[in-house]
């Protein structure tokens, strides 16, 4: 049976990855809503594998950066950016003339769980609609995706049931499974645990840690404890600028800058 090697880097993907040492690279990146500059002059290089957490107070521009990485922000009226954004070695504008290719390679899960008003089964396969899959293949993909998201045991007996009947935590894991069956090279997570219960939150954290060993994950979080638990790399943003970035060991050690220390310990930013 032909089961896709979920989360394994495929041959055509590896050709990009081999020549690049970074999954994402931002040079002189600034983002705007109308004339309002939300983030300015960001330079950032994210590794091929590992979990990068974007932390910082509300309005720092974390989600704006994230939403440009798969160009979902271009759906927002008046949103624009300047500078260069490269994903897997290719410019997100000129390198991906078909934006859907970029979005398949850069998966995204949003803060609020959003399942489509159809069955759990159809939700998982939504992104694979154009692929000709046999019933057996489709079934295997659904099972594998749900197992990855630690949801299989809870929903295996009701795959044809409506997805919106699941709890919020289950819905969020379904959203993750839906993104993972596309075998993305990069996964963007915009506060995925902000609106769910601690148990589901813990399950997602475990999943993010294990996925981070295979692909690049960029996660926005307000939860410093969470960043400390799951991140390999931390970027601290405030007022649209990077205050400091580094490995987890550095950012959560006494060696970090005074501003970072203040934010981490007091959840306050004086930028």
């Amino acid at each position: 049976m032909n089961i896709p090697n979920l989360l394994l880097v495929s041959s055509n993907q590896s050709s990009d990855v081999d020549v690049q040492s970074h999954s994402i690279r931002l040079d002189g990146f600034s983002a705007y809503y109308g004339k309002n500059c939300i983030v300015s002059d960001i330079n950032l290089k994210l590794p091929i594998k590992g979990v990068t957490c974007l932390v910082g107070p509300s309005g720092a521009g974390k989600s704006t950066i994230l939403r440009w990485l798969n160009r979902i922000n271009e759906e927002t009226e008046s949103a624009s950016f300047s500078g260069t954004v490269k994903v897997l070695g290719r410019d997100i504008m000129s390198g991906y003339p078909d934006v859907t290719e970029l979005r398949r390679r850069v998966g995204m899960v949003f803060q609020q769980p959003c399942v489509f008003p159809c069955s759990i089964y159809d939700n998982i396969l939504m992104g694979l609609r154009t692929q000709k899959l046999s019933k057996a293949q489709a079934r295997d993909i659904v099972e594998h995706g749900l197992k990855l998201a630690s949801l299989w045991d809870e929903v295996s007996n009701r795959l044809e049931g409506r997805a919106d009947s699941l709890s919020l935590g289950q819905q969020q894991r379904l959203c993750l499974a839906r993104a993972l069956v596309l075998e993305p090279d990069v996964l963007l997570l915009d506060e995925p645990t902000a609106s769910i219960d601690p148990i589901s939150s813990h399950a997602i954290e475990e999943l993010v840690i294990s996925l981070g060993r295979k692909i690049s994950i960029v996660m926005v979080t307000h939860n410093i404890g969470q960043a400390k638990r799951i991140s390999d790399h931390v970027v601290f943003l405030c007022d649209g600028k990077i205050v400091e970035q580094g490995t987890r060991a550095h950012m959560f050690s006494p060696r970090c800058s005074a501003k970072t220390k203040t934010y981490i310990t007091e959840d306050f930013c004086d930028c």
Binding site: N70, I72, E75, T100, E101, R103, R104, G107, M108, F110, Q112, C114, F116, P117, C118, M126, G127, R129, T130, C175, R178, A179, L182
Partner: peptide
């Protein structure tokens, strides 16, 4: 809008988003 964004983030084309996600609702 969240339905459109979620569908587009899965790599669906605009017409697929409309027929698969928006129209049924």
């Amino acid at each position: 809008t969240k339905f459109r964004e979620n569908a587009k983030s899965l790599g669906l084309y605009r017409h697929e988003v409309f027929f698969s996600v928006i129209l049924p609702q």
